[in-house]
């Protein structure tokens, strides 16, 4: 079963969660990144971290919408924890052969913005229900680098 079919978020372990399901359209990404920014601001992220999360979520969603199947959905789940926000975004793709390239300027920017970022290709063996997802984590303040 793909993430898009699961009815609710997993065990939250004290985190609060927000799920956003939109059409997989670039026109809705401004709404998603506005939610990300709002959550970070309310979680007392520092200004750079708010800015970074907003950009990272934009970048991740733009990457996924680009490969999403026509008329499909984008599901974004935000887990707000004490010191960080974890974001998982996933779309359905037409086939399991649809891959996201990590050899792009956008992906490099995403890696710089997020404290942790991972790409997952999922789906069934026969290629049905294939998905691509991105998980990213942003801490409330600057981590020592």
């Amino acid at each position: 079963m793909s993430d898009l079919d699961s009815p609710s978020v997993p065990d939250l372990d004290g985190a609060s969660s927000v799920e956003l399901r939109t059409s997989a359209s670039p026109a809705l990404i401004p709404t998603i990144r506005a939610v990300a920014s709002d959550l970070a601001a309310r979680a007392d992220f520092d200004l750079d971290a708010i800015s970074d999360l907003r950009m990272a979520v934009d970048e991740a969603c733009a990457t996924l919408v680009d490969v999403a199947a026509a008329e499909s959905s984008l599901l974004c789940t935000f887990l707000v924890r004490a010191d960080r926000i974890e974001v998982h975004a996933v779309v359905q793709t037409d086939s399991a052969d649809t891959k996201v390239s990590t050899d792009t300027f956008g992906w490099r920017v995403l890696q710089t913005l997020a404290d942790d970022v991972a790409l997952e290709h999922g789906g069934n063996e026969d290629g049905t229900g294939s998905t691509v997802g991105i998980t990213l984590t942003k801490h409330a303040g600057d981590l020592p680098r």
Partner: peptide, 8 residues
Amino acid sequence: FLASSGLA
């Protein structure tokens, strides 16, 4: 707002 696409 400035995303990587605009920066590019």
